[in-house]
Design a protein around this nucleic acid. Sequence first.
DNA 1: GGCAGAAACCAACATAGGCC
DNA 2: GGCCTATGTTGGTTTCTGCC
Length: 486
Amino acid sequence: MSNSVDLISKTAYLKFEQCQKAFFFYKRHPYLRDKISVDKQLTFNRGHQVGELAQTLFPGGTDVSKQTKNSAEALALTKTLVENKTPVIYEATFSFNGALIMLDILCLENEKYTAYEVKSSFKISEIYLKDACLQYYVLKNALPNLEDLFLVTLNQDYVLENELNPKKLFKKRSVKNESEKNLPYFENQLFNAQLTLEQNKIPNIAIGKQCFKPYQCDYFGNCWKETVADNSIFHLPGLDKEKLFEWYNSGIRTVDEIGKEHDAKEIIYKIKQAYFENKPIVDKEKITTLLSTIKQPMAAMDMEMWGPAIPKINGTKPFEQLPYLVCFFDGTTHSTIFIDYTKDERRTFAEQLIAHSKPFASILVYDGTMEKMVINSLIRLFEDLKNDLEELKNKFTDLFEIFLEFSYYDPAFKTNFSLKTVSGVLLKDVTYTKITSGLEAMAYYDNFRNEPKTVERKIIKQELIDYCQTDTLATFKLTEFLQGIL
DNA sequence: GGCAGAAACCAACATAGGCC
DNA sequence: GGCCTATGTTGGTTTCTGCC
């Protein structure tokens, strides 16, 4: 194998930090990777968009990735650009001691280089810092005149006013101090990583907490295929990984192997009983109490939010949530509020929300946390609508409580109580077609806003409405299901 | 009344799970 | 990614209790 193939990219290195086995798979058996989820892909896409916007902080740069096909070419082109004292380079590529890095932005000022690594978040996590320190390590050794490396993040306090101002939208923090302290660490870790590859065999590492931190591993499906039995302890809800692996490492694999001596929470023994009897936990008394708060006429409600990382509407901040779609379902008919947001239309939204909900005495929701948050923010904006909006909140009956408090628990839920999971287990006739998550809906709404063709816009809008209506249908049917078992 | 140890309390932080 | 809630852990402080 040639040398360039064994260069350790930043991604590969971070895998090594998480788990040597994951790193080995990444480098030698990439085909074992799990399929990337839609939600994960959307998060990546957002990151790229924010990265591109950050380039406008230092305009006119040469983009190495757009002019090269592989890392060897990227390294060569970067070398030339640096030699020619190119003032701004995007995706500048360097390698040192077997590590390969690409920098979002590299700027030459007064004969010295400053690098910028962009993150589409407010906070700098531990993993971001490590990531940046590695880049600093390589850069320090590959570039003789490095001034500093900054992590660039979104500014939580930025409010859009007319024209987007990237200088205020982003904030930066130097990682020079941390990086300088950690230079020997990376030297050592890169040596170990190379060693792992040279061994040429899959590192013998058992599943453990590292499979989840800082991210769920891409090779999860491969390593965990032995533990997918229905009654695996890993399908028990509410347990922390510490406890689970304590049990796992002492030989416990299935729910029925958990004994009184294992000092689990009471609910775990109840679930064990549910597995044994092959029937769900049902606390009719608690379910009755919750359902008795429902008054007729009732309707299920669901809201969709749009929260772009880069604010698009005047007066909003990064990631600020704007409600754009609400559906009500009363058992026979659906009603819908849909807002285009060509400008700040929250007032219109609030008024329509009040009007649409007025006819109902009870509003069924599934985890109404977000809805309550939205209503609270509307109250802050429009003091005069306070009474109506408070009244709406008071009409809520939240079915989520039943599942969260284990008043109804079917082992098939495993660790998951989302509306999608619960309705998937308990209801036969609720299916999601095009859009399958709130995050995906948000991306569709972006497409809707950017789509110039009227016909296309109409199609996307209908898909969004279908998704929202399906959630209300599920919530409504779930209520009927629960009423039916009492 | 003074003291040590236990119990109770609190704030901060982490984890799990939800929504978008 | 952001944000919320519920729950558990930890460490520190305050209060209670029993005993001399």
